[in-house]
Design a protein around this nucleic acid. Structure first.
Lengths: 236, 236
DNA sequence: CAATTTCCTGGGGTTAACCCCAGTTGCGCC
DNA sequence: GGCGCAACTGGGGTTAACCCCAGGAAATTG
């Protein structure tokens, strides 16, 4: 019944390690400094519980979780994140098995919350940080929840692509792109030219701003999209 | 010769406090949980050294530094930040007296670096985190450094305003806005329609993306701009 | 199967955002 | 004064991004 902690910040690892060894009668606790290392350690140690920081070099915590759960579905995973970003919730939802035990805690959680979360996941329950709960709520709402098509379009305009550029990369017509963007704007409740004269907002930029504000996208996710979308310039 | 620590994260305060009391032969160390509290404490205690987290509720660390240095110019301020964002460097440069002792450390700094920085500022020197150094370098470069006019325009498009909306808020003509944006795009090296046919980028959105990537703007700064610019709808 | 919903397609508009170019103003500097 | 420089003004373009409307393919559902 060992525990694994994966975080690139040495200080955070120490904090967690001290905390857990003080409150959970002493288990062997191991550490990893990035996602790749976390997978290797997990497969070797087969821990009951794994703490995974979402933002880590080489391999993100989410991708590490995916691979670990693929090989060892019984593992309890506890995601750590600095931000209550909806992107991460989206991604995590696809990765965790429907009946698995997992948790999501923000880095600014109190010591008590972390221990509580660890205990919950160890006993097979889930523990979701309060700040995340309302985000999850929103991802269930049909009227405001983005489809993956809309999401894709959002990422593209956030990178600064034109309709034409998006169409080429996603193998769509420009009209299809505009159609996606139109419903995106509607879901983000951005007023258009028709609603009022003397237009205040550029929908495209406004969408990026609001989406960032709501944690639908964030910089590090966008940079992944950028490598995916922009480096394949040759293959039109 | 007291020390004041201002940070909204209790965990970070504890980390700093433990660290400083271990390495700097024991000084009285006080704490504050936000910028406003920091000012009050500083005026009362007149500390030799103040640690200020940049991102704090009620009042930012930069603004707190401004007021503290205004009343007590001899104080050594040590800014703490999670990110190496150029915005903060810009702002801090306006606030610190030219010959004052100050420091800038990132939150992921090692314990040794923090102690080193504290010692430096206490003895009247400056200490700048390595990761910040190149940012400062860039702010000195005439070709890529933004003027405050360009910067203003950048913040506006990042909020999603149209040319017309910007013009009205900044009391400019639309042409003036476009002129500012044009030079902004040039400094960010964003290709325009003229450079190549089959345009890949929407300059406006691309500018926001690149500026965020380079830390020229960030979400919390934009939200301040938003309250400043968007809530004054009535006063055309 | 009919009904609904979702998503893409297409025609045919308007306008905000960009393009170039030529001036003017105001500033500091030699 | 004459010079350069930065920033705004204005005319007169082009085009990407938006607008509405209608229709069709495909999956979902009762």
């Amino acid at each position: 019944m060992t525990i694994l902690i994966a975080d690139d910040e040495e200080r955070d690892r120490k904090w967690l390690k001290d905390l857990l060894s003080a409150h959970l009668d002493d288990q062997p606790i191991h550490e990893a400094a990035d996602g790749q290392e976390a997978i290797e350690q997990a497969l070797k140690l087969r821990p009951k519980l794994v703490f995974l920081d979402i933002k880590m070099p080489r391999l993100s915590g989410i991708k590490a979780a995916e691979q670990i759960l693929d090989k060892l579905p019984e593992t309890g995973v506890l995601m750590l994140s600095n931000f209550a970003d909806e992107v991460y919730v989206r991604q995590l939802w696809k990765v965790v098995p429907p009946n698995g035990a997992f948790g999501y805690i923000l880095k600014n959680a109190s010591n008590e919350q972390v221990v509580e979360a660890a205990r919950a996941v160890l006993s097979g329950d889930c523990w979701i940080h309060p700040g995340i709960a309302r985000v999850i709520q929103r991802t269930q709402n049909r009227a405001t929840n983005l489809t993956s098509a809309e999401y894709e379009a959002l990422a593209c305009i956030a990178l600064g692509l034109t309709d034409h550029g998006i169409a080429r990369r996603l193998y769509l017509t420009e009209k299809a792109v505009q159609s996606r963007l139109k419903s995106l704007y509607a879901k983000l409740a951005i007023p258009g030219r028709s609603e009022s004269h003397d237009t205040e907002f550029n929908q495209r930029c406004r969408a990026v701003y609001l989406a960032t504000r709501r944690g639908l996208i964030n910089q590090s996710e966008l940079e992944e999209w950028e490598t995916k979308l922009l480096e394949t310039k040759a293959g039109g």
